[in-house]
């Protein structure tokens, strides 16, 4: 195993810029969260996310050209994609929901993904195996990572809700007005977004599996865990319809849902059935 610092030194300028941008976003939004009047910090934090987005898109673009394939194959590449999806989604969401704590959470989490990517840096750009050479590859992976990013935001909001259940913040409406919302309300909205994306990822994956393997579903561990994490949120949506489903329970379920997503993404090699799987990050 190589040293972390050795891996760090091998990263290119775009990558390092993104690391610093996430760090800056984390610091700036944390500072903004601790102050009442923090418009300038907010602005600077948004700029940091913008820089991170540009840097990561450039990183992925150059790697795409160099590798001659979409840069979404290895764990390292997927972590970079995940971080990019976090930055893009946060920028899009901030147009309506300007919540400093979530900006801070996104910044630190994005930094965490980048640091983990350094630890897991690829020794070599590997070729794409035949099964992954498909038009469905890019939409499947990108949709899933936007889904993961949305679930992360829901997870962050769930923690914020458990910490401050009654806190309310203003939300900008589409016509430029404002409206009140709690963390639980925001959490639910991001779950809805995440659920649509997870559904899309699942459906695209199944359609692709048919073209590649001749079957929509082969009960592969990764597929199974994608189904399990999808079911957590499907159950959440059904439970919400009944009485007695409190916001606290909802928050804990969201945390559980994020945990299943994290396990689906990173924990597959821990399963005894992993040896029978076709798609696990090495």
């Amino acid at each position: 195993m190589t040293d972390f610092t050795e891996n760090l030194m091998r990263q290119n300028l775009w990558f390092l810029t993104a690391v610093l941008a996430f760090l800056a976003a984390g610091v700036l939004y944390s500072m903004a969260a601790l102050r009442t009047q923090a418009n300038r910090l907010h602005l600077l934090g948004s700029i940091a996310f913008g820089v991170a987005t540009v840097a990561l898109l450039s990183f992925m673009g150059t790697r795409w050209v160099e590798a001659g394939r979409p840069p979404f194959k290895s764990l390292y590449e997927s972590l970079v994609l995940f971080a990019a999806c976090m930055a893009v989604l946060y920028i899009a969401i901030e147009r309506f929901y300007k919540i400093a704590w979530l900006g801070a959470g996104t910044g630190w989490f994005g930094l965490g993904l980048m640091v983990y990517a350094i630890a897991k840096a690829d020794a070599e750009i590997i070729n794409l195996p035949a099964a992954l050479q498909s038009v469905w590859f890019v939409p499947h992976v990108v949709v899933y990572f936007f889904g993961y990013a949305a679930v992360f935001l829901a997870f962050a909001a769930a923690i914020a809700h458990l910490w401050r259940p009654t806190a309310q913040f203003n939300v900008r409406t589409a016509d430029g007005g404002a409206q009140q919302m709690t963390y639980a309300g925001f959490m639910h909205r991001t779950i809805l977004l995440g659920f649509v994306l997870l559904t899309a990822g699942l459906v695209i994956g199944a359609i692709w599996a048919k073209a590649a393997w001749g079957d929509y579903w082969v009960w592969d561990p990764k597929e199974n865990w994608a189904l399990i994490s999808w079911l957590v949120f499907a159950i959440y949506l059904h439970l919400r319809l009944g009485k007695g489903f409190g916001e606290r329970t909802a928050a804990w379920m969201t945390i559980g849902g994020f945990a299943t997503i994290a396990f689906t993404y990173l924990g597959m090699h821990l399963l005894p059935t992993a040896e029978q799987s076709a798609h696990i990050y090495q």
Binding site: L34, T36, A38, A167
Partner: peptide, 14 residues
């Protein structure tokens, strides 16, 4: 409808 409410918690500014 637009409901403008003063910030009740620091940091959760619009």
């Amino acid at each position: 409808r637009e409901v403008v409410v003063a910030n009740s918690v620091p940091g959760e500014a619009l």
